[in-house]
């Protein structure tokens, strides 16, 4: 399945764009998505943390992704 991923902060710089389309296995998990991203872009491994939001909520690594989910990369936040 194809999913659209939004990137913010340093993750946008790493990908060079604010959104990418990625091909994932059906029923892929957040953990599998993170592993794929880290394998394709080594810079992700250097971050203090990388959270994934699914439909604008923090998701755990075993969350199952669906084709129409809004997925976002959340590197360490630094508001305020």
């Amino acid at each position: 399945m194809k999913v659209k991923i939004l990137a913010f902060g340093i993750s946008k710089d790493i990908l060079g764009t604010s959104a990418i389309n990625l091909e994932l296995d059906q029923h892929a998990t957040v953990g599998q998505l993170k592993a794929k991203l880290c394998a394709e872009h080594k810079e992700f491994q250097k971050l203090s943390s990388l959270m994934i939001a699914v439909n604008s909520e923090y998701a755990s690594t075993d969350t199952i992704l669906n084709e129409n989910d809004e997925i976002a990369l959340i590197p360490p936040v630094s508001g305020g």
Partner: peptide
């Protein structure tokens, strides 16, 4: 303010 700095997806 402490919780904003931990959880809110804003980056500087």
């Amino acid at each position: 303010i402490d919780t904003l700095k931990e959880t809110v997806p804003i980056w500087k």
